[in-house]
Design a protein around this nucleic acid. Sequence first.
RNA 1: GUGAGUGUAGCUCAGGUGGUUAGAGCACCAGGUUGUGGCCCUGGGGGUCGCCGGUUCAAGUCCGGUCAUUCACCCCA
Length: 423
Amino acid sequence: MKISAPRGTYDLLPEDTRKWQALEAELRSVAALFGYGEIRFPMFEHTELFLRGMGETGDVVQKEMYTFLDKDGRSLTLRPEGTASAARAFIEHGLHMSALPFKCFYIAPCFRYEKPQKGRYRQHVQFGVECFGAPEPQADAEVIALAHTIIERLGLANIKLHLNSIGCNKCRPAFQQTLRSWLDERAPQLCETCRARLERNPMRVLDCKEEACARLSEDAPVITNNICLDCASFKEKVETLLEGMGIPFVRNPRIMRGFDYYTGTVFEFISNDIGAQGTVFGGGRYDGLVEELGGPRVPALGFGMGLERLLLAGGANGREPLVNDIYVAPLGRDMTAFCVKLCLELRRLGVAAETDLCGRSLKAQMKYADKTGATFTAVVGGDELAKGEVLLKDMRSGETASCSLDAETIAKTMTIILEVDEA
RNA sequence: GUGAGUGUAGCUCAGGUGGUUAGAGCACCAGGUUGUGGCCCUGGGGGUCGCCGGUUCAAGUCCGGUCAUUCACCCCA
């Protein structure tokens, strides 16, 4: 029986990995420009962390977590997202006593038991950014600017920033009450799932895609008009700062976010041309999370970004770097010991070197060198050994250059030829 | 969890209304050129036609089930 990769997972072959490494390098570089340092946390956590952090009502927590008991009967869960872990680490290491804000990022595989489709996997990689201890709207603007810089750097044109505020724990309950009673009166017009949602989280009705619900929610009370003065003024400041930085956005009162920990600013970067799962970044402010997890009262915000979706949207440009590498072809079995040694010496000098491992004919070796993209080849036979000289072949031009048969001279000659080629 | 589409070689796909040893292109290997890649030519390896069952003298083809996969709903990154 054939064994394939589990549902919703995928392999990255060396060819694909190049793209990922290029993308990750870009992300690390942008994070550094904004003063964010990399954090790494475990792939699994106590289940409790996610229950408390993300709220027990959401779909992710209720039915999509990879939860298991370890041998001591502890309930552990493969992380479905990174924010809870980052907050836990922040608390655990007493980082509220460090220089605030504490700004960190991560590139972490996340796990959710979902039905796969385009842009959605059971294991996906998130780049996430968290900023702890910054209460001011300029923090929101900066985090959004970071996200914006990423899409700018990657040259992704068709991604739009959607911005909203879902209010704080002072004004949100009141709005939810208003909305609930408004919807209650019109309950018969709602779809089945939305009627179920009414009690628990009426705000989710607003971004339901069911036609009837969508039409109804056009006229529904809007959060933006119902948040408290503090929230409204905060929202306005964030918008003004974004405008000042020249970052375009659209006000979208339907942006909600799925996890309970969000407060105030929420945003998504949405692409229209990567299928139904168009949200590439999603994030916002979660001032209550750290305290909810047993830490001090510290405001926080951040976003998560799905790298698979970012790549779908075109953030791929993995250009192949020009490397000085050489394929050393032994001519006949007697030459293998010499070539193996020569390759090792070349590698010590920083030259990528390969030789025959399959006992192939010269022609087959040349084909291999061609297919693997070797920049240089050198054939080593009895003549070369006797004369102490080899021909270095530049595989792009086909030209050859004679050179003394020792690692150091070969390495030097290769460098010179490459420099000439570049000019 | 719900719905629809698709499963034939490593990859992309042909295989009218069932009919003998299941094909092509690309890829792979070898040779043509016994000391030099790309182009060309010749040859070769590689398939339990997703799986199980049914109808039939006969199933890649028809029927049922199942699994996988893709897209969409739900939800989210």
